[in-house]
């Protein structure tokens, strides 16, 4: 490869390297992903607080209720989701958890996975929890 060609390749790479953090910041803004990750160089820009989750199940005409017993495979999927969700937020929907819960009992007609994301409010300085519900129907 000639020097000029190498220069072109390198320039393209460096332009990508320079512009990528702007794209990452847009992902942070749009999907709530963590500024810490994905090479946007925003380490320690925001507090990192692990998300929680709740699972509500609905049998027949009964109202939604917390899942009475959580099978091990659902528990493992929840832990995996929490780890992903910490960094990817809305880019990590709980589809796998919803599918596994529906598959765990034939009587479940509907599953709601509620993701609880604590955030430190920049105005009040208080920790508050943002909730996002995902519904899965049989």
């Amino acid at each position: 490869m000639t020097l000029a060609r190498k220069q072109q390749v390198l320039t393209a790479g460096l332009i990508g390297f320079t512009l990528w953090p702007l794209a990452q910041m847009e992902l942070v803004h749009r999907f709530g992903i963590s500024p810490w990750k994905l090479a946007g160089w925003g380490m320690y820009a925001t507090p990192r607080i692990s998300p929680g989750l709740a699972i509500l199940v609905q049998e027949g005409d009964q109202p939604p209720a917390p899942m009475p017993t959580v099978p091990p495979e659902v528990r493992v999927a929840c832990q995996r989701l929490q780890r992903k969700r910490l960094w990817l937020r809305d880019l990590a929907p709980p589809d796998e958890v919803g599918r596994l819960v529906l598959a765990s009992k034939r009587e479940y007609r509907r599953v709601t996975v509620i993701l609880l994301q604590p955030v430190l409010d920049t105005t009040s300085g208080m920790v508050r929890t943002e909730e996002k519900a995902y519904d899965y129907n049989r």
Binding site: P21, P35, W41, G42, Y44, A45, T46, L120, T122
Partner: peptide
């Protein structure tokens, strides 16, 4: 540059929250 910019835009450093 982006380490500083990200700290500024997310608003956790100007008020000492972070």
């Amino acid at each position: 540059f982006f380490a500083g910019v990200q700290k500024l835009v997310h608003g956790y450093y100007t008020n000492g929250l972070m």
